[in-house]
């Protein structure tokens, strides 16, 4: 599974992306985030306030109850500020 991070989420995690292989029990975005938080304090800090985290799976906005599976590209970023 490919994870990508943008803006301050990228800064807090400390990298722009990574390939991860979470256990099969990780079936949704929420479970993926919980698993990441257990991997280190950088994730705990980045995902400390889920109200200001947006998620896309395979480049489409999703809610955190959305399923994830191997091969997916999952992106985490703050609310957008373009335009």
């Amino acid at each position: 599974m490919k994870l990508v991070y943008f803006a301050w989420v990228r800064e807090k995690v400390g990298k722009s992306g990574e390939d991860v292989s979470p256990p099969p029990t990780v079936e949704t975005v929420t479970q993926l985030i919980d698993w990441l938080i257990a991997q280190g304090d950088n994730y705990r800090v980045a995902f400390g306030d889920m109200k200001i985290i947006r998620v896309a799976v395979n480049q489409q906005y999703v809610t955190t109850d959305t399923p994830v599976q191997p091969g997916d590209e999952v992106a985490f970023f703050p609310p957008v500020t373009g335009g």
């Binding site: 943008f6 803006a7 703050p78 957008v80 500020t81 373009g82």
Partner: peptide
């Protein structure tokens, strides 16, 4: 289109102050 862009297009603005040191991410409005 512009209203939609401002809230959905995946862009993020990082502003730098005039002293160059103070960089901060713009918060959504």
């Amino acid at each position: 289109l512009i209203d939609w862009l401002k809230t959905k297009a995946p862009f993020w603005k990082l502003e730098a102050g005039t002293d160059g040191a103070d960089k901060h991410w713009v918060e959504a409005n």
